[in-house]
Computed example of a mutant assay.
Amino acid sequence: MDLVEIAPPAFDVELDLRYATADNVTGAPIYTRAAAYLHAEAADKLARAIELARPLGYRFKIFDAFRPPEAQWKLWNAYPSDEFVADPRRGSPHSRGAAVDLTLIDGAGRELAMGTDFDAFTPQAHHARTDIAVEAQRNRALLLGLMTAAGWDCFMNEWWHYQLFNPRHRLPLISDRALARPLMA
Rank of each mutant, 00 (worst) to 15 (best):
M1G: 10
L3P: 02
L3R: 02
I6V: 14
A7C: 04
A7W: 00
A7E: 08
A7Q: 11
P8Y: 00
P8W: 02
P9K: 06
F11M: 08
F11Q: 04
F11Y: 15
D12W: 01
D12Q: 13
E14H: 11
L15N: 05
D16R: 13
D16S: 13
D16K: 11
L17T: 03
Y19L: 14
Y19R: 12
A20E: 09
A20N: 07
T21P: 06
A22W: 09
N24F: 06
V25T: 14
A28R: 13
A28H: 15
P29H: 09
Y31R: 07
Y31A: 09
R33G: 02
A34M: 07
A35G: 06
A35W: 01
Y37M: 03
L38C: 10
L38H: 04
H39S: 11
H39Q: 14
A40Q: 14
E41V: 14
D44S: 13
L46T: 00
R48K: 15
R48S: 15
A49R: 02
E51T: 11
E51K: 14
A53C: 04
R54H: 15
P55T: 01
P55G: 05
G57Y: 04
Y58F: 15
Y58S: 02
Y58T: 00
K61H: 06
I62T: 03
F63H: 15
D64L: 07
A65M: 02
R67S: 14
P69R: 05
P69A: 09
E70M: 05
W73Y: 08
K74R: 13
L75V: 09
A78C: 10
P80C: 06
E83A: 14
F84V: 06
V85R: 04
D87K: 09
P88H: 05
R89D: 12
R90D: 15
R96V: 00
G97N: 03
A99I: 00
